[in-house]
Design a binder for these strands. Structure first.
Lengths: 212, 212
DNA sequence: CCTTGTGAATCGTTTCACAGCC
DNA sequence: GGCTGTGAAACGATTCACAAGG
């Protein structure tokens, strides 16, 4: 398969969200232009993004909202549910464990882990926090595909090593430190402080950073 | 001023974090190669990133860790503190209000707002939650530069409109919906579900997405 | 000799523009 | 007539490669 840009995948995710709303509000078809406006991009961009995966529209008509939703869900791999574990049940880990936006999209939180005995045993939205020592055993049993790391920076690399060694093939890192993972493991990082720093740069150097 | 790519700014933020650690561990100088390794990039990339803003190194020697830290802090606009308000004191808003990573970087949370009376008055790390109705009045008084939105998707655009109209010039959006802001307002979005979906795509289409 | 700083080359993404089809 | 799908052109970011300087 061809290489797909991350920016393309990110936009597909946005398109899908808009299509779901659009379908709920009773529309049956949509044009690339309407879809573009929803995601702050251009109609050509929308068509190009989709063209990597096939042709889903009808010339002169646009796209069938329902069919396109299904197609994008398939492209993103969302026809099936994904199992997620969260490591680190501090403020952010706990917030994510209870975040509705995950579950509604087919991501099931099947385990939450912490090394602090005071947190072990507490319940977060139906899932109880388990000791970090059980990680390997649980991964072997539950086979989660994705691990979300919400541990302190110092602990993050060690946890990433442990979960990937135990078979997890995708990591979402909220710890404010870059992680190295072995070839073949998908990795993404969300760094809240960096996001604020990019905004600070934008405010300081008015206009140097193209505003989205 | 020249246009600076967002990716450059993001890397500068990473370099700075590493430089701070590196300085703390007693090193006085660093080469572009060492800095590159820390951030998962190349020495040429590091030098190019810095070259947009000046020349900070000595040929044959590398960079003075302390001087480069100061230079990057200045580039990012971190010599001065920034005031931040958080709108929405649900799970994620509350977690961010108490997140140490913000305060240690010079971002001061000066206000937290919620429309739910049950949450108003509760204390989050020393800042008490105030009613959303007070937003405009407080912004006029406290002059926060940045607003972090942790409200539900349906409410996000209205809050963005209110805070920008009241004078906030940068918005960090955690609500899972794209926002339109007026020209001249810096905007960034963090969408947790999208991040998981990018990972799901990576897992589904093994290798199509270049793994970072 | 080592490492920076930077023009030039390469690579990748977005935009353009239009042929093809409903 | 209107809108998609897509090569080609334009643009932007990264990598290369080397001259310059400690």
């Amino acid at each position: 398969m061809k290489h797909i840009a991350e920016s393309t995948v990110r936009r597909l995710s946005l398109y899908l969200r808009f299509l779901e709303e659009y379908e709920a509000s009773g529309h049956a078809t949509i044009s690339s232009g309407e879809l573009a406006e929803s995601g702050g991009t251009t109609s050509a961009q929308v068509r190009k993004d989709l063209s990597f995966f096939g042709s889903f529209g009808k010339r002169g008509m646009g796209y069938t909202v329902k069919d396109l939703s299904i197609a994008i869900r398939e492209i993103l791999g969302l026809q099936r549910p994904w199992s997620v574990i969260i490591v680190g049940a501090g403020k952010i880990g706990a917030a994510l464990a209870q975040y509705r936006g995950f579950t509604t999209r087919g991501f099931r939180v099947v385990g939450v882990y912490d090394r602090d005995p005071a947190r072990v045993g507490t319940k977060l939205d139906g899932v109880s926090v388990r000791p970090e020592a059980e990680l390997e055993r649980d991964i072997a049993k539950l086979k989660p595909e994705i691990a979300v790391l919400c541990v302190p920076a110092e602990a993050a690399q060690a946890i990433a090593d442990r979960v990937t060694k135990a078979g997890v093939r995708a990591v979402l890192n909220f710890a404010p430190t870059p992680l190295k993972v072995t070839e073949g493991v998908a990795m993404r990082a969300v760094n809240m402080a960096t996001e604020l720093e990019i905004l600070a740069f934008g405010l300081t150097n008015g206009g140097a950073l193209p505003v989205r």
